[in-house]
């Protein structure tokens, strides 16, 4: 995948996530496609592509919908870094892999976000956010699983979880 394709995906994701995908708010939580796609690209494409996607998405989110510059840029970058390290010790073809990665990635995003906001004295009590975080984690794991499975099939030519392939 070319770098410019990755940048275009990041822009399309930003536009759709901030507009039409807002319709899919459940319990006031919306799935985070930046986390999902960052992990999918980090595990199924190259680290370079994953970092380009993460930084472009983070930058767009910080500039147009963020409280301050750099937060999402930093967190998505760290997320990709972590995903690249973890995928080395995990089996990409197992159907549990995307669910675990998406779930862990979402929780990691919120924990780091909370810590950064804490130092800027701008945090929100976690008890107020808990139901939203749980809902987002579930949605990300579920949607992430399907996206991962589709991309995995295209990249490897066999289905996710097909141990006879």
């Amino acid at each position: 995948m070319k770098i410019r394709t990755v940048v275009v995906i990041a822009f399309v994701n930003f536009i759709l996530s901030s507009t039409i995908l807002q319709l899919f708010r459940i319990n006031d939580a919306v799935p985070n496609f930046c986390i999902i796609l960052s992990i999918v690209i980090a595990t199924l494409s190259t680290p370079k592509n994953a970092f380009v996607f993460a930084f472009t998405s983070g930058l767009l989110q910080d500039v147009f919908l963020g409280r301050m510059l750099g937060v999402n840029f930093l967190i998505y970058g760290l997320l990709v870094f972590g995903a690249i390290k973890i995928i080395d010790i995990m089996f990409k073809g197992n159907f549990i892999t995307p669910i675990v990665l998406m779930g862990m990635g979402t929780l990691f995003y919120h924990i780091v976000f909370y810590v950064i906001m804490f130092f800027f004295q701008s945090t929100i009590p976690l008890n107020l956010m808990l139901s939203k975080i749980i809902m987002e984690t579930l949605m990300n794991s579920l949607i992430g699983y399907f996206i991962y499975a589709i991309i995995f099939n295209r990249v490897n030519g066999y289905k996710l979880g097909d141990f006879n392939a």
């Binding site: 536009i15 507009t19 807002q22 919306v30 919908l65 976000f113 929100i124 939203k132």
Partner: peptide, 14 residues
């Protein structure tokens, strides 16, 4: 309103 916050922490829009 042309876009709404993608995250779940704040309520911002453009």
């Amino acid at each position: 309103v042309i876009s709404k916050d993608m995250g779940n922490w704040f309520n911002m829009f453009t």
